[in-house]
């Protein structure tokens, strides 16, 4: 086997390895990516029910309701311009509070309720997930002079 043929073989092996990897990645980008939307974007993007995505915003004041089974909670996520109802079954993270930033991962049900399979809360008071901050920024406004009651109106 000559040097040239060996090099050719190496290059071919390398290329096919890369080719397989690219194919795998393109395949994974179909389902493996989870897009992040704010409640306003969720409305404008016409998300198909069942698609996995993340939504982020603040947990609306006085919106957290615990269902009778004791494990399912429903609440609303707001970017202060639009809100999305969310349902989640499980133990919420340590820092899940009304009025705090939250990111929920799951999919939108046909009835418009976001079925969350995973809840991420703000890590601590000195840190906000950039995603939440960006969602709030994108919503374009904080309600002026609005108390918690003002926020509940969608």
């Amino acid at each position: 086997m000559t040097r040239k043929r060996r090099r050719l073989l190496t290059v071919v092996a390398g290329m096919s390895c890369l080719g397989v990897a690219v194919a795998l990645m393109l395949n994974a980008y179909g389902d493996g990516l989870v897009f992040f939307y704010s409640p306003s974007e969720l409305e404008s993007h016409h998300v198909t029910p069942g698609q996995r995505l993340r939504i982020g915003g603040l947990v609306e004041e006085n919106s957290v309701v615990r269902q009778s089974d004791g494990l399912t909670i429903t609440f609303k996520v707001t970017d202060l311009s639009k809100t999305v109802p969310v349902s989640y079954r499980g133990i919420v993270p340590d820092l899940f509070r009304e009025g705090q930033g939250v990111v929920a991962e799951g999919s939108l049900g046909a009835d418009g309720v976001f079925m969350a399979s995973n809840i991420l809360a703000k890590h601590d008071e000195k840190y906000m997930p950039p995603e939440v901050a960006a969602a709030l920024k994108k919503s374009g406004r904080w309600k002026d002079g609005a108390g918690p009651e003002g926020v509940t109106k969608p």
């Binding site: 795998l24 990645m25 395949n27 980008y29 990516l33 989870v34 897009f35 992040f36 995603e131 969602a135």
Partner: peptide
């Protein structure tokens, strides 16, 4: 400007087969 998160499904589908 779109926000996206790449999580376990992506890595399972790419890293695993390799």
């Amino acid at each position: 400007g779109e926000k996206v998160s790449v999580g376990k499904p992506y890595f399972d589908m790419t890293f695993g087969p390799l």
